[in-house]
Design a protein around this nucleic acid. Sequence first.
DNA 1: AGTTCGTTTGTGGATTTTCACAAACAGAAG
DNA 2: CTTCTGTTTGTGAAAATCCACAAACGAACT
Lengths: 414, 414
Amino acid sequence: MSVEPNYFQQYQHADIDELADVIGELLQNPITVEDADHKLIAYSSHGDSTDQARWSTIMGRRVPEKVLTRLWKDGVFQELLTQDDPVHIPAKDEVGLGKRVAIAIRRGSDVLGYIWAQEVNRPITREDDEILRQAARVAVSRLMQRQGKRKAEEQRRKEFLWELLLGNHKSESTIRQKADSLQMQLPTAYLICIIEAAGARLDQYLYPLLMRDKLLWVVDGSQIILLIGLDGSVKKDVREVLVRKVEQFLADSLGKLEAHVTEGRQVIAGYGLGYQSTYTEIVKSYREALHALKIKKLFPQENEGIYGYHELGIYRYLLQLKQWEAEQGYENERLEKLRQYDRDNQTAMLQTLETFLDAAGKVNVTASRLHIHINTLSYRLRRIEEIMRVDLENMNQRAALYLELKMAKLDQEQ
Amino acid sequence: MSVEPNYFQQYQHADIDELADVIGELLQNPITVEDADHKLIAYSSHGDSTDQARWSTIMGRRVPEKVLTRLWKDGVFQELLTQDDPVHIPAKDEVGLGKRVAIAIRRGSDVLGYIWAQEVNRPITREDDEILRQAARVAVSRLMQRQGKRKAEEQRRKEFLWELLLGNHKSESTIRQKADSLQMQLPTAYLICIIEAAGARLDQYLYPLLMRDKLLWVVDGSQIILLIGLDGSVKKDVREVLVRKVEQFLADSLGKLEAHVTEGRQVIAGYGLGYQSTYTEIVKSYREALHALKIKKLFPQENEGIYGYHELGIYRYLLQLKQWEAEQGYENERLEKLRQYDRDNQTAMLQTLETFLDAAGKVNVTASRLHIHINTLSYRLRRIEEIMRVDLENMNQRAALYLELKMAKLDQEQ
DNA sequence: AGTTCGTTTGTGGATTTTCACAAACAGAAG
DNA sequence: CTTCTGTTTGTGAAAATCCACAAACGAACT
């Protein structure tokens, strides 16, 4: 194996722009350097033979969204994030991206940024890879400095998000001011989503997804709290689009987390309602998300596959009702009667009733779930009506019983 | 017409016992005098040829319950209360009541008491009626004195009942003491019932019923508040017996009131839960009764024929929930969407949904109530599911929708 | 005028529900 | 042991539900 020359020995102390130029000269091709968030840091002034993607990146000071999306989708970033070597990327004309080579600038497992070398003047071969590897190493210290600043800023942003979540700001104008001063672009419509997984470094595992969707987030113990936002381009059915977005995110992330992280699948998630224009309502969405999470812990089966506060149905009211009942010192006589009957006669009337109600009054569904004959069910239902003195045909009574049954489960199960 | 002699001229100032003896001698038969509450006031010492009913009355200082019940049932009291003449009553052997004649002692329209003349030594004829009429007139002043005391006592009792209703007494023992000092026998189990009829003198119309059931009551504006009680003889299913008693009372009284008093049938009633042993819970039962009344005003159709707080079903929670929703600043998006659709397309989806839910999901019932084809209904339901993004087969969603619909009616109708 | 869209009504057949009635069974009480 | 009571299962017929598909209708739009 031949000893490789040290290409950047005399440029150890050059600034990042100079570095870009040096790499560009070595490879005889245009170079761009980006940070981990794909913001432009430096670019070579070499020539003007540049493709659409590079031009847009330089003009917008950031890689265009559609390019990023495409590269995520094609697995380019996944490669870059997991290996030290340069990745050779074929042209993707649909997004205006010419053929190029990229390498991650990393320190340990942290990715600080990327170097991109376009292939226009000459092809970049495997022999050039060492140039890029060395360039990436030299770039580390430059990006560290930047990252130091970035981290402090990031810290302030996270603190600000916490303030919003906890409702510390009372006026919309101060929120907008502070967001401006932190150079944060708050979405025009948003909702709060919480993912909880005991013992997992959530932000780490979700990093690619968080980056992909450009989300604001904070980590709180075993929870990660996400602000899912939409920009002003969506005009109608805003809430529905938000819900689709968060459901998509959850589909992506929960699958990944469950496979990746925990064996006992203690991954749960919940999200609040969507709000528009006003940022003081982030508190509400956050509390709603917490509520949804709480309910999902209390009634896991009942709310399987449900994450949104708006989908909770009666469970939205249940805790409040329960508390109110407790204050009133009310104890449900009818249900107690049925329980007593079950104890006395070793029957399962209560379970029968619950299954029946859960099945929305469909006899065949109920019977098959209970593995009993349909006439047995009809007999039991008649008995239940006698014992409890209720009319199960009456929707009011049915709904009330349903509520009371679920309330009773609250202090029964735990 | 012959001039009747003045039988009692020389006894104008005799006391009531002496009066009883005089009547007894005139009629040559045993006499008893009772107050309006059928408590024994005086009885002739004439002979000992006495039937079971009279004997029990004297021994118990009050007419036995079963005798009273029977006489009410047979319409004897109704006659006595409405006419000035003596009423001739045939023997009723089943309750140990021999043949006798009775007359009400009245002042204006107020009944102060009754004079009873048993027919054992000789028959009492139409000629004797004048004796009884005069006797009743002479007895008035004696009973007035008694009634004066009774009214003051009654007043104190009513005040005490108000204190109980409003929860002024915090301890059971002080309640029991005060009840003893007022010589009130509080029932061991009770519930509060309220009847409201605009512009009717409720206590007047209900007087016979109130007397029959020996109820405690107070009048408050257009409401009469009743304490329906049971004594200690009922041991099991106390609440059920209470409910039967109050339902019986309401069946009797509402029929009477609606026929008798108001044309526009603004007679409404409601009653609270039953409680035992503790009198501090009269407040609760009273509030529950008020709540039931309120709900019946807000949802008259939905609660037709329902009076008990325990029968209110979801309506028990509705006001509380509504208030909570308001506090949370929640506005129901899904329902609003449907309403919007109805406005845009001149359809009746909301009404369809409500009818469907009210019918507990039975399609044929729903369709016939709406006077539409069953397939039209099924089409509409499918559209509703699309528009609102709900699954009407799911009990949770169904119940939640039902609740929300009724809540929405609260601020919609009024 | 024709077209489109959302709605209503009709038909027919497979499936489910409802109801009444009978038989079998097990545990408790006499 | 028998008797009684509450429960489960079976049968069969009438009624109700569900589903797919077709046709008619009116209002809005071109």
